[in-house]
Design a protein around this nucleic acid. Structure first.
Lengths: 344, 344
DNA sequence: ATGAAAGCGCTAACAT
DNA sequence: ATGTTAGCGCTTTCAT
């Protein structure tokens, strides 16, 4: 059986209060006494019971991690879709939470609040929300704080923090890069425009088209993004009288689907068609040709999101608050038309 | 503030014991009383405090999920490597745990047992262990049960359950398939032979070579598996006087690396070289050509592992116990030499 | 500087 | 069938 605080107190010949003080650093304890307690703790291999601590402190030090994606229709919920981005945000968030002695619970985005209550969730981290997720349905005043990765339409209350990239800036950079490479008619293939990052892409794309005098070509695909759907969409717009000569895709799988469609039709990438993914992923590096993409720095996003949430929970920071994680365009073969190595 | 059991008791005009009985289903409660209690619970939106329940029951209903991979050297630990297999096992395990009202905690495989004690972990699910992970260092009698996905060298104690695939059978099927397609000199590229699944591949491969009179070609690469390392290894063995005409790779990224190396050298897949991955993944489907692979059914593995662990924890089953999850070879273009569509 | 004691919300023995 | 009560292991006033 594991030792409890009373065992430690007995062994160190002090009261349990003193032991508690030593552990928490609160209160004053004489150095000698402290030493004795520490020795007793080490001898007994004592660890404070986490459930007792949480019961009495009324805090669970537990965060929910939710990816707000595509779970609507499906029956068996996919907690973590197969995307590098999500995985890296999760890994970083989990490490950071552990470091701060918090527990990260991966929950489906469509669990209702009773489950959250049950686990005594202190804070929620929600990736790519649309804003209509259950968690935002503010019935009176819920017990948790929220940090979103991506913005929602919800008004910025004092319960919400935001970690985001500047997608409009990188989209602009992408379009400039494409123009520099001689592409004249970029198209946009994206999933659900209900998410802020896809909306940012589309908004900036439309601004650009207007300024440059292009006719915009936007295809909005249902979620989840699949290579098949992207390939079909690409085939369709490439069959136009005036087809696009570059395609900006909102997700790695969409970019890959476009690549396959292009290759099927005998188009050369990057010569006949430029391809960019708005989200980087390791698979884009090893595609042939490698695919230009925007690196969003998911690791930093995960860390900053957890930090923001915890510091708000511990009253060291106030919401609303917003952090922009630096991101950058990574140019690869799929858009290097001017110095292209001959690609089939 | 959330209601507690006393609020419910007061509202229903019963004792807290009766409320507890209604919730747990234990004890006898008159139908009418039960009805009143249920109404009170609904009215107050009552949820039993999970920390109090866990404190008194001395059970945490918490499982640790660990992927025993590649974390040795790296500093910031990668909890979940970027592999379809792991992700799908995790998704399935997490769903199943939630369904059974357990919490799944994703922990790094190298956390020491004090963290596990701290969280009061009841059971550990460990994917692809080598057997030298900290969790197996049986200092006296730990408080948790273990289920491994893959076998370890540790003796089968009453604390361990195993969920595995029959890798030897599928390896045999793979080699037969390759022979049927006319490949005569298969090679094996694998990571760390310390894991049971890679060992199974190698053992069965060696048996086959002996029987068929081949000279075995095995390349063992350090972890983690990267396309680069596999490509380098492939180039090397393809440069031999008598190069292999088929390569069996132990992971998706290794297979992709081999594919790139082959294409770089102007070899046609499947004509000049057959490629098989011992683990299926969605990327293998969309590679060009698509790559033959063994489907391990990670979803079933995740569910069975959690089930096994929970039923052992709840005394409905005894360890040691072993379950084999059915797996199958999925033949794709990369080995269909006889009916090959011309591939560059 | 240290300790006694109350109480966090619940379960389970043991009455009645 | 229902209630009383004693903890589970801890934190935190409040004494001393």
């Amino acid at each position: 059986m594991a030792a409890n605080i009373r065992d430690v107190a007995k062994l160190a010949d002090v009261s349990i209060t003193t032991v508690s003080h030593v552990i928490s650093g609160r209160g004053r304890v004489a150095p000698a006494t402290k030493e004795r307690v520490l020795t007793a703790i080490a001898d007994l291999n004592y660890q404070a019971n986490i459930h007792a601590q949480r019961l009495v402190s009324q805090k669970s030090r537990t965060l929910a991690f939710q990816i707000a994606s595509f779970t609507q229709n499906s029956n068996s919920t996919t907690l973590i879709p197969n995307s590098n981005y999500f995985l890296e945000v999760l890994n970083a968030a989990s490490n950071e939470a552990t470091r701060r002695e918090y527990v990260l619970l991966i929950l489906s985005a469509d669990v209702d609040s009773s489950l959250m209550d049950r686990y005594g969730i202190d804070g929620v981290l929600i990736i790519d929300p649309r804003g209509d997720e259950k968690i935002f349905q503010t019935d009176s005043n819920p017990d948790w704080l929220i940090v979103t990765n991506g913005r929602t339409v919800n008004e910025l209350t004092n319960r919400i923090g935001i970690v985001d990239n500047d997608h409009r800036r990188t989209t602009r950079e992408t379009l400039i890069h494409l123009r520099d490479e001689g592409y004249e008619r970029p198209a946009l293939i994206t999933t659900d425009l209900g998410r802020s990052y896809t909306r940012d892409l589309a908004d900036e794309y439309l601004v650009w088209c207007k300024k440059e005098g292009h006719t915009p070509i936007i295809v909005e695909l249902p979620e989840p993004p699949t290579q098949q759907a992207a390939a079909d969409a690409a085939r369709k717009i490439l069959a136009r009288r005036l087809p696009p000569d570059a395609i900006l895709a909102s997700a790695e799988d969409l970019a890959l689907g476009v690549l396959h469609a292009a290759q099927d039709q005998g188009l050369s990438v990057p010569r006949d068609l430029g391809i960019v993914s708005a989200v980087d992923s390791s698979v884009l590096l090893v595609a042939t040709p490698s695919i230009t993409a925007v690196y969003l720095d998911p690791e930093t996003t995960g860390i900053r999101a957890v930090d923001m949430l915890i510091s708000a929970l511990e009253d060291q920071a106030e919401f609303p608050q917003q952090v922009i994680v630096p991101s950058e365009l990574r140019i690869r073969d799929s858009t290097m038309r001017r110095n292209a190595r001959g690609e089939a």
